[in-house]
Amino acid sequence: MRTGSGIDTVSWAEQLDARSCVLLRLGDRRFALAADQVSELVAPSRMFRFAHRTPGIDGVILRRGRVVPVCDIAERLIGKRLTSRRYYLISKRRQEAATDWIALPVSGDCELIQADLTAAGPSDSPHVAAWLSHDGEVIEVLNLGALTPGMEPMEGGAGSAALPEAQA
């Protein structure tokens, strides 16, 4: 089984049984994140902007005394930025032993579900870590490492995804 560097090696079966995921909405579409990558959902707050050169980072917000960068992933996933009132989904990114936080603007409330996951295949986009089915809808489980800046690419293109790619 291929895993990215920094990810504990566990069996394929253990990874792909029922997992807790958080459903999030971007515009009219729903996506999912592994629940252990989600810290909290917060109401919109003031965003601070300052000069920088990293594409994809809009600014930062203050949350519990911590400065958290805001990254609008909607443009990459649905083709347009979120313009309506939005919440911030504070997500955790892990690489090796380090964890940092990033705020993802989302369109509305999020939902915690249990779902069986299917690992992403070699033909899937890099931002897809896995797939799940919920309420008759097939939903992409997102790979934050491929969607947000500052994460080094990992073997198999899994980025910081907690779900390894499966070998046929």
Binding site: H52, V60, R66, P69, C71, Q95, W101, M151
Partner: peptide, 20 residues
């Protein structure tokens, strides 16, 4: 506060970090 790793371009040289 140190810049988040999400900032990964010239600003990492420009700034020591952020303060509130």
């Amino acid at each position: 506060q140190a810049l988040s790793p999400a900032f990964c371009h010239e600003e990492r040289v420009w700034y020591r970090g952020l303060t509130v």
